[in-house]
Design a protein around this nucleic acid. Structure first.
Lengths: 196, 196
DNA sequence: TATCTTCCATACGATACCGTATGGTAAACC
DNA sequence: GGTTTACCATACGGTATCGTATGGAAGATA
């Protein structure tokens, strides 16, 4: 046992490896997530890695599970709101995925989606997360008074927009860009019942 | 000289390598664009590669230039239309970037943008292409009667949406998805002067 | 026919990485 | 104190890749 129970151990544990792996994934992409590089970053050798993980794939799957759990927990927080404030909450959801407000999260998001294009396990996790996100956003739109088809389409537009925006390299001055983002967010989150 | 002038040569030339490189880039990403794999795909060894290219970076830059020129030429074609048909043309632009209509182009687009997040030269090329795309779309919106700020924002939304959509893994049946895409395209391309 | 140019194959050293095998160390336990 | 356990270092074989050096073959040229 490590001292008693939950005290942070001096030595590395599986979770520390996973967190460091996500950092490296964000910076270098899945192709750069290499065992020996990760070990070097943590100041140890890969002897430590293979103590905590069976192989590289074991780490990959652990990273995906960790990411999925974190995303779903976040979605829960971001889409719960008092009745009547759904439109404002949708604006908040859009804001959370702005690269300027959450650069690290966006980098991880993009890295995982890039990964998902060439890895079935990653694709399955992204599908699950997308399904939850779409459902929660759709409910907010429904609460705003939109019909089923429109709510679903708006939810898809919302997430396509936020991720797509972080893919563009626009030649727009940053303060104008911020105003532009607000205008677009208003369009996407606009509801018949409230001007928001 | 190779026979006369423009007859396709039996042996490889720089352009054949670049085209094959873009195929491999689409499939494997920039990390998978390796000299020896590419040579193997072309049925030769890397001895040939290093005859046509100084090094791997030389190929990378050539790929970027080739892609940039192709994109800008495409944008020219896609955004030229008779006066009065701008709204329809915008719908066509959206359609062109649908993954179902142009899977290869989308894969290349995503691979280049992934590349651009970690490579300055790639980022510069993407910036140029985005600037041209944004400008042309903006002009179409202006011709529809939108004001400057709105036209710019709509153009950004248009491209963020099309690229973002190809990043999502939505749990929507494909025929419903098609209807949803049409509805979203109508929103984005909607103009005051025409219902489109 | 002899040579030259173009294009490619082969062989090489160097690096980075994977996964395994094995030894070492320090704390926990008895 | 001796042993066990958790964690890590080191060393190894194997693979993939980069870029270079060098030789060869086939067509163009003279």
């Amino acid at each position: 046992m490590n001292q008693h129970q939950n005290l942070p151990s001096r030595s590395l544990n599986r979770d520390a490896w996973i967190r460091a792996a996500i950092d490296l994934l964000a910076k270098e992409g899945i192709a750069g997530l290499r065992v020996e590089r990760l070990a070097h970053r943590l100041g140890v050798t890969k002897g430590s890695f293979y103590w905590h993980f069976k192989d590289r794939r074991d780490l990959h799957l652990a990273v995906l599970e960790h990411w999925k759990a974190g995303r779903i927990a976040d979605i829960d927080k971001q889409t719960r709101c008092p009745s009547g404030t759904e439109a404002e909450q949708l604006l908040h959801v859009i804001d959370v995925y702005s690269a300027s407000r959450n650069p690290r999260g966006i980098l991880i998001e993009l890295a995982v989606r890039e990964w998902a294009r060439r890895d079935e396990a990653a694709a399955a996790v992204v599908s699950e997360v997308d399904a939850v996100r779409l459902d929660r956003a759709r409910r907010l739109f429904l609460a705003c008074g939109l019909d089923e088809a429109t709510a679903t389409a708006r939810a898809a537009l919302l997430y396509a927009y936020v991720f797509g925006m972080s893919l563009l390299l626009l030649p727009v001055a940053s303060h104008e860009l911020e105003a532009m983002r607000r205008q677009i967010a208003q369009w996407i989150a606009a509801c018949p019942s409230r001007t928001a």
